[in-house]
Design a protein around this nucleic acid. Sequence first.
DNA 1: GAAATTTGACCTCCT
DNA 2: TAGGAGGTCAAATTT
Length: 269
Amino acid sequence: MEDNNWDLSAVVRSHNINKPNDVIVPNSGLKKSNDQVIITDQNSNQEMYLHPIQPNQFSQQIILPPLPTMIMCVSTTSTTPQESIYLQQLEKSDDQELTDDKRAWRNYGQKSIKGSPFPRNYFKCSTLGSCKATKIIENSPKNENYFLVSYSDEHNHDPLTYCRSLALYNNSSKRKLSKSINIVPKALNLKASSSSSKRAKSFKVDASSISPFAPTLEIERNNEMVDVVVENKDDIEEEENTYDNIFMDFEELHELLLPSNGNEIDKRN
DNA sequence: GAAATTTGACCTCCT
DNA sequence: TAGGAGGTCAAATTT
């Protein structure tokens, strides 16, 4: 990563936040009021607002889809391909589903990473042959309940293309249209410390549940769009430190967005 | 039989 | 320049 200026911007699907009650997260400076989420910078006393945006505004955002929860952090550097990190919390139930990102991915490799007990999985966009978008998923070395998902390059098509291609795929194959698609490598289901060939039960998401129009949120400060939240610590030299920063803010956001329904993320050690 | 996934080998980059 | 680490390829395997 050439640039450690990881900024966090935007937001969340209404799924988790459309609760009318005001919520104040203790000691966080975060408040939810009606459709808006307010974040108060305790240093500058500035307020920032989260509010729904349209899909066509979708760029450089943090995404918090329905549980299991996912956050995307996007580098704001303009000279390098857009990259992002998803932090994804997975619930440990047998019938869990994994939220999708509206894209079809093909796993093209898996690699064990030094210092991490978990393998890293590499994906390419399988929607269009010309699409250069890639995605890397790995368990967080800090918290096995989280996945770190990084993206590089941009899709040269929109998510709708994915839906159409999915339909064509199902029409041209003998598979049932309702067949679920696996969007997470089976290996990620394992908490194994090696790249064992053992196959595990996979996370699946029903293709019929895919909606390209899920509302999202973005962060606004004083009526001006800003990139916020993940602060850039001076002289961050290790990726692990970056993860720490992201996790700190993720916890705050998660508590903010899931304040009253009893959903709690696992506490880190 | 086709598509997706796994996994070892190979390639590239960095120190 | 060598070695290590990470990224990609592609054949084998699984679904």
